[in-house]
């Protein structure tokens, strides 16, 4: 048995509470509050206490999916990347960069948001990048 606590930041609201994810043999099995954290001071709300609840859910997507004749089928990463790359490139050349639009995510990290807007602006060539700040 291997057990660790991993210090991280709550994935729910913007308060910014810290929490420990309890990791047992490679699975997240629970959440613990962090006493010394300036914001959460050893407390969590009910969502924070359950921040591990969905991580290993059976519904997690584990493979790329491609729609074929109305149905999803599993695909490899290469096939999925190639399909997206081909089609995005042809839309860009046929209809211009503003025919493409990207939604980034308030759930993803700063680094991921940075990269997605960089990809959209530097490579796709459009400012059609937004996220649900208003929603």
């Amino acid at each position: 048995m291997e057990y660790r606590n991993v210090l991280t930041t709550c994935p729910y609201c913007g308060t910014g509470c810290a929490l420990y994810l309890q990791v047992l043999d490679g699975s997240v099995v629970g959440t613990l509050p962090v006493k010394g954290h300036p914001i959460s001071e050893g407390a969590l709300c009910i969502k924070g206490w359950n921040a591990h609840g969905f991580i290993h859910h059976a519904d997690r997507l584990t493979k790329p999916l491609i729609r074929e004749q109305g149905q999803f089928r599993e695909a490899g990463w290469d096939e999925a990347y190639n399909l997206i790359a081909d089609r995005f490139s042809s839309f860009k050349s046929d209809f211009g960069p503003d025919s493409l639009a990207v939604l980034s995510s308030a759930k993803c990290t700063n680094e991921e948001n940075y990269l997605l807007q960089k990809f959209t602006r530097a490579f796709l060539g459009t400012n059609n990048v937004d996220h649900c700040a208003r929603l």
Partner: peptide, 15 residues
């Protein structure tokens, strides 16, 4: 409302 709305705005995920 969301853990990283502030960050997504700071990172330029805005039009």
């Amino acid at each position: 409302g969301q853990n990283n709305v502030q960050g997504a705005c700071d990172m330029g995920a805005l039009v």
